[in-house]
Amino acid sequence: MGKERWIKMQPDKNKISSYIIQSQEQEIKRIALELHEGVGQTLYSVYSGMQFIESAIDQPEMKKYVEDMTHILEKTIQEVRLLAVELHPPTLITLGFISAMKSYLTIYTATYGIEVDLEVLGNEVQLSEKENITLFRVCQEALANIALYADTSKAKLTVTWEHDRLLIVIKDFGSGFDVGKALSKATGLSAIIERMYLINGKCIISSQINEGTTIEIALPLIY
């Protein structure tokens, strides 16, 4: 009987990363749906019940208490809905990347007080679900970094639909940082580069201290 031959298979790191990201996105999508359809709807039912109780109470002190509780519930419902949109905008798949970004920027400005000037050039092209999600996550990560580190109240997001590629430029006018040092660590910037690589895109990050940061991402458009 001959000796068995064992072949050591090297795992494809890119496939593993892609699988992990896809699995994460599916879980995020599930959580967002549960927040919106499950928790959100349950809270709304309680809110409606509180409104009914409030209308039936005559005692001023009790009425004021129920009214306060109703306002708290209303605020909680809004926060849950905003969180669901932030996790996975329902418009991302149905209406596309631009519509989802517009919805997200409204939430972003309301949350962080940073005005983002969105400029869209050219005609939007239908992208795959994977591309839509990746681009959204990349922009989300870049904007989160601006809110956390840039120390600015303004940013600009330019989306240009060219004949053979999609170009997105995210620019802030904040404090800037050392790109080399940041990329040497496991940061959100590294995640942006890897995400774009997994959909055959490219990413260029440039920054100057006290002059701001620019992130350019490009995605080939295949018809």
Rank of each mutant, 00 (worst) to 15 (best):
E67T: 14
Q10W: 09
C203T: 15
Y197G: 05
F173M: 07
L198A: 06
G201K: 02
E119V: 15
R81E: 15
Q22M: 12
A150I: 02
D12P: 05
I217Q: 00
H88N: 14
I20Y: 13
I193T: 07
G40I: 02
A191N: 12
Q78T: 11
E86Q: 14
F177T: 05
L73P: 03
S55A: 12
L221H: 04
A182W: 04
D172N: 14
G201D: 01
L92G: 01
A56Y: 12
I16C: 08
V159C: 07
T158A: 13
L221M: 09
R81Q: 14
I168E: 02
T152K: 06
I199L: 08
T109D: 05
Q208M: 13
K3F: 13
T213F: 06
S190Y: 08
S206K: 15
G2E: 12
L166S: 01
M101N: 02
G174T: 02
Y65L: 15
H163G: 10
Y149V: 07
E4P: 05
L183N: 09
P11F: 11
T160K: 10
S17L: 14
L143E: 00
T70P: 00
I20N: 07
I16M: 13
I21S: 04
P90C: 08
S206F: 08
L82Y: 15
W161A: 04
G122D: 04
P220N: 07
V66M: 07
I77L: 09
K156H: 09
A186N: 15
Y65G: 05
S99D: 04
V39F: 11
K154I: 07
K63V: 06
P11Q: 09
I77F: 05
F52N: 08
Y44P: 01
L166N: 01
E162R: 12
S190C: 15
A100T: 03
H163V: 15
R137D: 07
L189K: 02
A182P: 01
I93V: 15
P89R: 03
K130R: 15
V39S: 04
E86M: 09
A32P: 03
E86D: 14
R137H: 11
I170G: 02
I7M: 13
T94F: 08
I217S: 01
T214L: 11
